[in-house]
Design a protein around this nucleic acid. Structure first.
Lengths: 181, 181
DNA sequence: ATGAACCTATCAAGTGGTAGATAGATGACG
DNA sequence: CGTCATCTATCTACCACTTGATAGGTTCAT
């Protein structure tokens, strides 16, 4: 869901590589050495910027959450249908263009294997996204959890079946439902 | 989603432990030694029954998928609303009673880190479950993907927020929507 | 000459996997 | 019946490799 960045220093390149790998292989599928190779440095240099794996992954999570929430913007500035379409489009892009998990979808699945500080960041992301959705839909709608769940699950389905159209079907159907409501 | 078993030999105990750990920590969060300790044998004995990690995890996936699909039964034997309620109940139980991921939800997330034979088993599970749902809903409904996505995503949300009521809200809302349709 | 940004080299722990021994059950055959 | 061979399930002991992490040195711009 996160977008492009340019003119990066080593620290940002490390975050980029870590994010990419976390979204594809999960926490235990990422190693300092792989990240270092992506960036073109040695693994000790990764430790220089991020002393432990927990601090590195927490930094990735924080940057990712901030970027997503910034992209969502002010829920009051949009009607319910537009808000759902915007959120759906972010998920659709993650699948279609990046062919990877939403970072926090991955972290939600693996939460039992994550350092506590990373789990906390995941909880924050979902809480804030739900708050945003509820604000956009109207507080009494009660659809926020289901819409977010459908989008996250759509990514799972599309990845498991290796078929991005799964995600598109979900976004389309949820949008229609919400426009009708 | 899988249910209880009794009078097990070592091979079944190994599958039980592996399934439990896979649902909680993911593929790379499971080790032969941990499983062996659960069962009360040495890791070489696990290799005796399942020579490689890929064969072990594929066996877990096969058993899990077969059990789930057997529990779903014949889609023609139920109306659409009942079918959705049954599927929803299976997901609800996974979260409320086991406090873990649906195995294939986890595998969908981590699919990039999985041996090919395991990924194939995941694809089979989702394809068959969707086929079952489509048969139950009526072929032209087009809601199957979204319903399954919402349920899988509901598990993610409930785990990330450590709040089983998330899953319950999703099941409830999807059921109501489907009963109305 | 100070400090940031790297490096080399290493460590202890854990990984999947293998080799070979052993104890006990099973069964065939004289 | 006895006993010999085979099979199953388990063990101990190891191997090569990867992991996160650390210590200490080098390079280079300010």
């Amino acid at each position: 869901m996160a977008t492009a960045r340019r003119r990066e220093g080593t620290a940002e390149k490390i975050l980029d590589s870590a994010e990419e790998r976390l979204c594809r292989y999960g926490y235990n599928g990422v190693s300092f050495r792989d990240i270092a190779a992506d960036v073109g440095v040695k693994s000790a240099s990764v430790h220089y910027f991020f002393p432990t794996k927990a601090t590195l992954v927490a930094a990735v999570a924080r940057r990712y959450a901030d970027l997503c929430l910034a992209e969502l913007g002010d829920p009051a500035a949009r009607g319910p249908a537009e808000a759902v379409a915007l959120l759906g489009e972010m998920f659709r892009r993650t699948v279609a263009e990046r062919k990877r998990m939403c970072l926090f979808g991955m972290m939600a699945a693996e939460i039992g294997a994550l350092p506590a500080e990373v789990g906390a960041e995941a909880r924050r992301f979902f809480a804030e996204t739900l708050r945003w959705l509820r604000a956009a839909l109207g507080e009494d709608s009660g659809a926020a959890e289901t819409i977010l769940a459908a989008f996250e699950g759509g990514v799972l389905l599309a990845r498991a079946m290796d078929d991005p159209s799964m995600m598109e079907k979900v976004v389309e159907r949820v949008s229609i439902h919400e426009a009708r409501a």
